[in-house]
Simulated assay, not measured.
Amino acid sequence: MRSLTVIVPAHNEEEGLPATLESVFRQTVPPDAVIVVDDGSADRTGDVARAFGATVLTPPHNLGSKAKAQNFALPHCSTELVLAVDADTVLAPDYIERITPAFDDPAVVVAAGNVQTRHTRTVWERGRSVEYLFGFHWHRPIQNGANSPVVCSGCCSVFRRDVLAGFGGFPERTIVEDMDYTWSQQIAGRRAVYVADAEAWAADPETLTYLRKQVWRWMAGFCQNVRLHLGRLILRKPLLAVWILLAMVEILTAPLWWATPVILAATTDQTLPSALGWWAGTDILLTVPPLVYAARRRKLPVRRVLLNIPCVYPAKAVNLYYAWKAVWVELVLVPLRLSRGLTVYEKGRAPTPLAAG
């Protein structure tokens, strides 16, 4: 098996870190080294990591982003592969065993597994669970089959270390390093892959405050990458550019779809309740079959998964608001030099916006 180092950036993760490290140290194929970057924590994050036997690195001050914390650890890695794990993500026991064979192909430089939600307690977590089931069992396999994954999720991706180091480490120029690296490597002619059978569970937003911060970072980062990479994607990786452009079309046309019942009621003989019924029925018809398939693949109770569908609509509303905000700020105001865009990494769980975990 290939040698592998796990890097866990952590800022004030005393509570969530034990589950992450327990999953790392219980791998069927154990890593050669585990490094926790205790990035300016005010709690016992470092002590927890040491208790598990991890190597703890402590920067002289909070570095301000996950990518910077990961880069602080990168010079301490000498293995062929590096697995970056968020401090609130839990890996399946066979995660490393299932994902490392992807690197038998020398063209593969980054690989990511199937991410699902750890908890489904609140409306926001339940909505995210639907989004993940749909995305990781519909969009990702199609993109992977076309050799054009849009992103290798930063919470549990494996990297070929020499290529990562040669690139300058985890990208710090955008607010979402995982998408930046995924696109950059494909533009360079290398491969990013999705490994469906390697499973991980991430702790997702349990409150609207957390959701807003996370979605704003994701959407702003997506648009930053569009601004930075789209021209080269069209020239060097046109199929990936197609996925990106389709995502942009979806963002721009989503308000029209959401307004369809009102438009139908105003322009046809349909009443508003009738138009709403038609709209909801169509939307559910497009959503249910992939969800049933995903639930069966993951061996989840289908009824429980389907009952979460109503929760996805509040989450979609938040996504749409911040997607449009990101388009306006990152693709209009920044090029006009009227804004710097989003530059502060803010995850939303830590008491400070400079959370690296």
Rank of each mutant, 00 (worst) to 15 (best):
P59L: 12
V151K: 08
P141F: 07
S157D: 02
Q116D: 02
V85S: 03
K237Q: 07
V29M: 04
P101T: 10
Q116C: 04
V29W: 05
F167W: 02
D197C: 06
A84Y: 03
D269R: 15
D283Q: 13
T120L: 03
T209G: 04
V226A: 04
T253V: 10
L74I: 15
N225I: 02
H139R: 14
A42K: 07
V48R: 04
G113K: 07
Y132Q: 09
V318G: 10
I96C: 12
V318I: 15
G348I: 06
A220R: 10
M179P: 09
P205H: 05
A280R: 13
E206S: 03
A107S: 15
I187Y: 05
A49Q: 11
L246E: 01
V90F: 11
S3I: 11
P290V: 02
L133P: 05
S3R: 14
A107H: 11
E346I: 00
R121P: 04
T120C: 07
G277P: 08
P60S: 15
L264T: 09
P9T: 03
D94I: 04
A102E: 10
G64I: 07
V37Q: 05
T100W: 10
E97N: 06
L252E: 02
G127R: 01
A323L: 11
T45Q: 07
S274F: 14
H76R: 15
V163L: 01
P255G: 05
R190M: 13
A112M: 08
V344S: 00
D269L: 14
R26L: 06
V109T: 14
L91F: 09
C311F: 03
V109F: 05
V85M: 07
W328G: 13
Y313S: 10
A10E: 01
V115I: 12
L21P: 10
F52D: 06
R340I: 06
L83P: 07
L74C: 10
V29R: 12
R337Y: 06
G221N: 06
R126G: 02
V82C: 11
R340E: 15
V242K: 01
T207C: 04
P351V: 08
L264Y: 08
R161S: 00
I234E: 07
I263G: 06
P314M: 02
R191T: 13
G64Y: 13
I244P: 00
T253F: 12
A275Y: 12
L228P: 08
F167R: 02
V56S: 13
W278A: 03
W183V: 05
R126Q: 04
V226D: 13
W324A: 13
G127W: 06
R98K: 15
A254F: 05
S41N: 03
P31L: 03
D39Q: 05
W279Q: 03
N114R: 13
V115R: 04
T122G: 03
